[in-house]
Simulated scan of single mutants.
Amino acid sequence: MQSPRGEPAVDTVPGLSAGPVVLAWLTQFLVGTDLFVVAPLLPHIAASFAVSVAGTGLLVTAFSVAYVVASPFAGWISDRWDRAWVLVVALVLFSAANVGTALAPGFGVLLVARVVAGLAAAGTGPTVYALVSTRARPQVRAQVLAVVGSGLLTALWVGAPAGSLLGRYVGWRAAFVILAAGTFLLAFPHAFVWRARPAPAAAAAPERSRRPGTGVAVFAVAVTTLWAFSVYSLYTFLALALHSGGRATTVPWLLVAYGIGAVVGGQVGGRCADRADPVRVTRSALALTAALEAVVALVFPLTGALAAALALFALAAYAFFPAQQRHLVDMFPERATALLSWNNSALFVGLSLAGAVGGQIVHVLGYPALLYIGAAVAVPACLVARGRPARPRGEAERP
């Protein structure tokens, strides 16, 4: 059975080969590198346009706001049109925005280019996740999502530093040219590898009246906002706190420990979600996130213990995300891209709140106090996370 767009129905998918998964991983890595590389390049950009470093921070804000606003709309379009072509158009637009970033003659044009990049990015990540999740076998859906999501996490601790080095030695404009070329080249294989393939017939979808409503969806993705605030309140100000404490030399390898923990955590969370109820995995991850964030606050003065605590915290925290994605896709298979788009928007909202509120807390109370508050926020997220509404007695569970 096929969907109205001609794509295989969720329960009839024969599975994914390595090629599409690698392609999806590379896409997430390059788009993630573009997102994370801006911060270390801000001093170079500020010097080029004679603006303050604080002023260049608008570039990050503009990208994030554009992404949050556009993501639900992009998901709505993707669920009603061919997802592969939506992804191709988004990648071409993203590449053009990076060319505009590299060639911008003034700061105003640069700001507009970053807004366009944010709009285009909103159509890439959720669409990639939806294409992968709806074609992966249900038994390994969360694991495949975790593998693809690790591209974004790898960009956090590999792609961004590499881009920073490029900015230092060949100029910040060249870094964006390279990213533009990479995303443009990726658009071509995406146009072919996701073409609909014949699939065996499957049982009819459940009646519309039995599907969870929009209120359930909003409630589900709100958990991601709380999770993101908890996680990124720790990450955003970690380097600043270490610099202020005279431990600047420890920043690179502590971030590597964090990054490795995050990548491993995503894989663990994916495997567990495929073998157990995804909501149980999200609740367990949130509970561990709260506990370990408090541990990080306690051992913050001890560098060795801090490295171990950061790795464990990241492992627990990032186990949440693939389980949450699988949970959303399982609940709303016909609206998979839209729900994953909402989820990504919720992530950016939590991240933005962590940056805005966290800075004030660090200034007034100090970094450890922010960690205790972040841990406290993860607790209600754990309590409100809930699964699929109960089924009538005797109704069979879908495979």
Rank of each mutant, 00 (worst) to 15 (best):
M1I: 13
Q2R: 13
E7P: 04
S17R: 13
V22A: 15
L23N: 03
W25C: 05
L26W: 06
Q28V: 07
F29H: 04
L42C: 00
P43S: 05
A46N: 00
S52G: 14
A54I: 02
G55Y: 00
T56F: 00
G57S: 04
S64V: 15
V69P: 00
A70S: 12
F73R: 08
W76A: 12
W76K: 04
S78L: 08
R80E: 06
W81R: 15
V86Q: 14
V88I: 11
A90V: 03
S95A: 15
G100C: 11
T101I: 14
A102T: 04
A104V: 00
P105K: 02
V112R: 00
A121M: 06
G123P: 08
T124C: 15
T124Q: 06
G125V: 14
A136C: 05
A136Y: 08
V140E: 14
A142T: 08
V144H: 12
V144M: 15
G151S: 10
G151V: 04
A160K: 06
A162N: 02
G163H: 10
L165C: 04
A174T: 12
A175R: 03
L185I: 13
L186E: 09
F192S: 08
F192A: 10
R195A: 05
A202F: 06
A203Y: 06
A204R: 11
A205N: 10
G215Q: 09
V218C: 07
V218Y: 14
A220H: 10
S233E: 10
T236H: 08
T249A: 14
V251S: 07
A257C: 13
A262I: 04
V263N: 07
G265H: 04
R271S: 10
T289P: 09
A294L: 15
V296H: 06
L306G: 02
A308Y: 04
A308R: 01
L315S: 04
L315E: 03
A316E: 07
A317N: 02
Y318G: 05
P322F: 01
P322E: 07
Q325T: 13
V329H: 06
V329K: 01
V329L: 02
N344E: 12
L353N: 05
L353K: 03
G359E: 08
A369E: 05
A375V: 07
A381K: 05
L383E: 01
V384M: 14
E397K: 06
P399D: 07
